Amino acid sequence: MDGSEPTEADAWPQAPGRLNWTGREAWADAVARLVDGLEAARVTRLCWITQDPLSWPWEQAELLERLARWARPAGRQWLWLGTDFEPVRHGAPRLMRWRATWDHRVQCLAVEEARLLEGRECLLAQGLGLIERVPGPQVQGRICTDPRELVLNARWIDAVSQRATVTFPVTTIGI
């Protein structure tokens, strides 16, 4: 995306259903479209589930700026579930700077039992939609806006988060 305002054609799909995407550019576009729709849909909770955080397009400055606009109002939360957060410290400097600023909105939870994530890579904006990457060597996945499926995914995320522990502080303090 070029940083310009999204057009109606670029908007997040409003009708329930699924759209498939293939390729890194299409994936980055899907993530950007979801982030662009957060404010209009009044989404207060964003859930990111990843075992491969560096594969996501969070190093795009304009995407992080739009995410910051969403995070600004009180009551917004980004829940981040994963198995290994350390690659982000050195491999995603923009995301780390963004996170340092918005740490009060971001909760990182470590899932000790990787099997609980079942190879899932997804971003859920509750009430708006889900972007899910299909495991495998190809960069492909789907967009889902089906309200029933969004509720099922939100319940699954809540169940997994109950078995996870808070982790990945912005700064580490040595004694």
Rank of each mutant, 00 (worst) to 15 (best):
G127T: 01
E25G: 10
Q77S: 08
R133C: 06
A61K: 12
W58P: 00
T167E: 11
I143L: 15
V35N: 07
W102I: 02
T172G: 14
Q140G: 10
G23P: 10
L117S: 00
Q107E: 14
L124T: 01
T83K: 03
L152C: 08
A40K: 13
N20T: 13
A9F: 10
L124V: 06
P57R: 06
E59F: 02
E5V: 11
A68S: 15
T172F: 10
A28K: 05
L64W: 02
G129F: 02
E86T: 13
Q51Y: 00
M1L: 10
G3R: 08
W102R: 07
R99L: 12
V88F: 03
A100H: 09
V106S: 05
R133P: 03
A92V: 04
D36N: 15
P169I: 01
R76I: 05
R105Q: 11
A41S: 12
T101C: 10
I143K: 02
P93Y: 01
A100L: 08
D36K: 01
D2P: 12
I49G: 02
A159F: 08
L54Y: 02
L123D: 05
A68I: 07
Q60G: 03
L38G: 02
P53R: 00
T7Y: 03
W27C: 01
L130K: 01
G119Y: 00
C144N: 13
D146S: 09
A100N: 13
T165Q: 15
I143E: 03
R94D: 13
E132R: 13
E5H: 11
Q126Y: 04
A26P: 08
Q77D: 06
D84T: 10
A71Y: 00
E5L: 13
G82R: 01
Q138M: 08
R105P: 10
A9Q: 11
R142Q: 13
W98A: 01
F85L: 07
A92R: 03
L81N: 02
